[in-house]
Amino acid sequence: MTDLGMPRLPAPGYPADVRARLETDARELIGRYPQSRSALLPLLHLVQAEEGYVSPSGIEFCAEMLGLTTADVTGVATFYTMYRRQNGGDFHVGVCTNTLCAVMGGDEIFATLKDHLGVGNKGTTPDGSVTLEHIECNAACDYAPVVMVNWEFFDNATPASAKDLVDELRAGKQVSPTRGAPLCTFKETSRILAGFPDPRAEAVDQGGAGGTPSLVGLRIAKGQDPDAPATTQTGKGA
Results as ranks from 00 to 15, higher is better:
P12S: 12
T231W: 00
R219L: 00
E136Y: 13
R85A: 09
Y80E: 15
I30E: 02
K122T: 13
L165M: 10
D225K: 01
A221D: 00
C137K: 04
T125N: 11
R19N: 04
G106L: 15
A49L: 07
R21K: 14
L215S: 00
R179A: 05
V54Q: 06
E108H: 11
N98Y: 14
A162N: 00
I109S: 06
C101P: 00
T231G: 03
V204G: 10
K163C: 00
P229C: 10
V204N: 13
P182V: 07
A77K: 03
R32T: 05
G120W: 15
E51A: 13
K187Y: 08
T212A: 15
Q35W: 09
T97W: 09
F186N: 10
D115K: 09
V18K: 14
N156Q: 08
C96Y: 13
T2D: 14
G13T: 09
A221Q: 05
E188Y: 09
A20W: 06
R27C: 14
F61W: 05
Q174A: 15
A228I: 05
Q35R: 15
D3I: 06
T234N: 02
V149A: 02
A144F: 07
L117R: 10
Y14M: 07
T99F: 06
V93M: 11
G208K: 04
F153G: 05
R27T: 10
T70D: 08
D227T: 01
L117G: 04
G207C: 11
Y143H: 12
